[in-house]
Design a protein around this nucleic acid. Structure first.
Lengths: 244, 244
DNA sequence: CGTTGATTTGAGTAAGATCAAGTCGGGTGG
DNA sequence: CCACCCGACTTGATCTTACTCAAATCAACG
């Protein structure tokens, strides 16, 4: 339970993955911030189909967005890593069309939802950044549709692992060739439209083929090139992204 | 090949589905418009992975966004109907991560991509509308992930047909209980992650069950309630949406 | 008529789901 | 310390959904 971090000391901003921000924009962001929020692993950050009063930036930890069918079938839409914005759809659309759940303990930077129209009025650069982030997230979901709709189970798992590894890497989370990996096999299954059992078997094939090391809570990818080939997954190099 | 329609006479704006727009915003939009573009059915409106110079609003006709794997497997991400914005991701991200193809003859209203930053600078209401449209499209794609990942083939087809029927309806395209329906079974299959053959059989089941009438180019849904039940598909009532 | 695109039908198959146990490791309480 | 519980992971057996391949039909069109 650390004290709130001032935006000027944000641990994320120095990372190469993020676009530098000017002093006026930083002041505007800092001024709109209304606090921080901590969630424990497994907590519901935002409930499905609910009106929201906050928009958050993920400071640390992992989370995911999901939707469920009334009979309980769950689909994970995408994963959220440090720097990601969440809850924007709740502000723009009437209410949030999906839920958000924490995968690990999570530290969130909170903004009042009415800060958004404020940014658009007074700070076009930030407004454009917000729209950029929205477009970027849509790109991720577009990829998810392609993966779930047209890739084989093996391709899906490989593509997801590469994708998450690279994102974790650009958030500075690699330690001696591996990342902390908080997903259970059920999460992988729910993200990829597979059953847990089948997911388990595919993971074993990847392990036995020497493509990955995945024990307990850490993931290492031996040969990234090979994994990309298995997953038929080539994403363009990540551009420097804005950080709210 | 009609002459360009001035924004003030836009045939879409009077529809109840669209949010009214003030005179200054209308003037700004009108001023940014650089022309119209006609495409024939089947034409590529925007190519995959390409830098773009234009953003379009679909004035009339149907189109779809898609991605392909290098071996030819194609996934349709969502369908575009009159009033939809396309090409925004090409402006914000470096280049367009998906292709856009016309399903019917299509009439597009063109804006130079650099009109977007201009809107953000000078016209916060329009900027917010653009972001709203982006968030709304993401919602559609989120739904697509849920459909493809967790619904059965029967549910997928039923949900898609209801979805498209309702959207066509709100674009004013219903004529005596049916809509013009330009998708082939291959399009349906590619949108839903199914094979054409299986799609065909599911459609036949829906027809024989009396749920739909789908002959050649027209779709009618007998009992919408029943179809929603089959598809496990309940969307929230469509809000009035902005039109660029 | 011949061609072409869309749809339909049949037969065989494979990918992945379901069901049912069983293992393993890390708490927790007695 | 040990029994036990619980969640995550594994494994095997069986089954089903939806895919593949192949071919026929059908309508529109030049």
């Amino acid at each position: 339970m650390e004290p709130p971090i001032p935006c000027s000391d944000c641990p994320l901003r120095p990372l190469a993955a993020f676009k530098p921000v000017g002093p006026t924009a930083l002041a505007a962001i800092s001024g709109a911030k209304v606090g921080q929020r901590l969630c424990t692993s497994g907590a519901t950050i935002l409930a499905e189909d609910q009106a929201t009063t906050r928009v958050y930036v993920l400071l640390s930890g992992w989370a995911f967005r999901f939707k469920t069918l009334e009979d309980g079938r769950r689909q994970i839409l995408n994963f959220l890593l440090p720097g990601d914005l969440l809850g924007l759809q709740g502000e723009l659309l009437a209410n949030l069309p999906h839920g958000v759940e924490a995968l690990t303990a999570v530290n969130l930077c909170a903004f009042a939802t009415d800060a958004i129209p404020g940014f658009f009025r007074d700070n076009p650069d930030i407004a454009l950044d917000i729209t950029w982030l929205a477009a970027h997230e849509e790109r991720l979901v577009d990829d998810a549709v392609l993966t779930v709709g047209r890739r084989t189970a093996m391709e899906r798992v490989a593509a997801l692992l590469v994708h998450l590894y690279k994102r974790a890497a650009s958030a500075g989370l690699v330690e001696d060739g591996s990342i902390g990996f908080p997903l259970t096999q059920l999460h992988i299954a729910d993200a990829l439209g597979l059953s847990v059992v089948h997911t388990n078997r595919v993971l074993q094939r990847l392990r036995k083929g020497g493509f990955i090391r995945l024990d307990g809570q850490r993931l290492a990818i031996g040969d990234l090139r090979a994994m990309r080939r298995v997953g038929r997954y080539w994403e363009e190099p990540a551009p420097r992204r804005p950080l709210l």
